[in-house]
Design a binder for these strands. Structure first.
Lengths: 214, 214
DNA sequence: TGCAAATGTGAGGATTACTCATATTTGTAA
DNA sequence: TTACAAATATGAGTAATCCTCACATTTGCA
């Protein structure tokens, strides 16, 4: 997960080999500083306003060093995004692993939504990254892949709870519910808190009806 | 609706007075040519890749003329987006106006979704604009305002069908359902056609359950 | 006809992502 | 220890592109 930071997306959304993987201790630390600087700047001003020169300056490295490990600006955002998805994936898997009945799913799903909502509210970097997700092809594909992976956990649960249902329908439901969740989070954090809470509650209700009903 | 083309958003998402409203016949025609050129370029390469110089060249005007009516690049995209929203708003109002019972809502809503889906599939410009909607603050606010306006039509219907329900809950439901619709469309057109169809169908089912049930 | 307002022009300013020739540091094998 | 190639570091410079502005032209109208 560490050396992967230098892996990077390209215009067409493909992920290519790293510009240069940091192999020495020194450079690994510097890459960390670069990511930390980028993270701080994104939190302060958003990723659009983040300037490569500023990232380098704040990390205490030259602009050239930055480009030694990240082929372009979006690669930095992508690297940060990848960390978030990797972290949350484990959390989701754990939450859904032992769901055995409808009530269990209701509980686990409700908690997951709350956790995500709090995360979105608290983490300005995550907020910014997933806000721009629609604009950047590489990020959109990372999110889609992430969503499909997360949906797998839901699918596994659904197959247990509704063994008679059409598998394709279950897959579609799980993937859609998950994607709508991401959209709901983005929406909820872009309005005032009170309305955001109501919207998240609405999402929960609709999603659970779809997941449990029929 | 014509002269409004020169109205423009700014960095903070506010809409300001036009750089200069075209008052003569000549300039109005030129503004049309600029918008047509931009539209064609967005259809070909996407709004990100659209170059201002190219827009000017294709419209047969100088770069200076372009900036006479549009304060910046996003203002052009915004002007195009505004046209789409204005058009569709009328369509939505008409479709929902005479809904009297649950079955009528089911029919009208289903048709509206189909129309939107076809529109998203067919119009590359619309597709591009609403894809980038999350990234551009001004566009996001246009979409939010549009969504709230459209939700009003739904709210009116719901109030008729469910007069006993909590008004705030109805508003939240309508707004959420509408926003999820936009998200569902964006998702549906970014996967293959077959899966997109299934996702739209899932959206319809979930939305109608929420709109009619309880 | 004359003149102010509207419109038109494009070279150039300003910003910024990104490159590359060159310098320094590190690991390692003789 | 020394030699040396590979890895790493540097920052002035390049290229692309948005946008401005001083000046030219056209239009509407008194």
């Amino acid at each position: 997960m560490e050396g992967r930071s230098a892996v990077s997306p390209q215009q067409d959304g493909q992920v290519t080999s790293p510009r240069r993987a940091p192999s020495q201790q020194r450079s690994r630390e510097r890459v960390e500083r670069m990511l930390a600087a980028a993270s701080a700047l994104i939190a302060e001003q958003g990723s659009d306003a983040m300037r490569m020169g500023e990232v380098a300056e704040r990390a205490g490295v030259s602009i050239g060093s930055l480009y030694q490990f990240f082929p372009d600006k979006r690669a930095i955002v992508w690297a940060l995004a990848e960390r978030y998805t990797a972290e949350s994936q484990a959390c989701i898997a754990a939450a859904l692993k032992d769901v055995g009945d409808a009530e269990g799913l209701r509980q686990a799903f409700s908690e997951l939504v709350d956790i995500y909502y709090r995360l979105f509210l608290a983490e300005p970097v995550m907020r910014d990254i997933w806000s721009g997700t629609q604009a950047d092809k590489a990020l959109r594909e990372l999110e889609l892949a992430d969503s499909r992976a997360n949906a797998e956990f839901l699918i596994a649960v659904l197959r247990r709870l509704r063994p008679a249902a059409d598998p394709v329908a279950l897959e579609t439901t799980a993937f859609f519910v998950w994607q709508m969740g991401e959209a709901a989070m983005r929406l909820a954090i872009s309005v005032d808190r009170e309305e955001g809470d109501r919207l998240v509650a609405t999402y929960k209700r609709m999603a659970l009806r779809e997941l449990l009903a029929e």
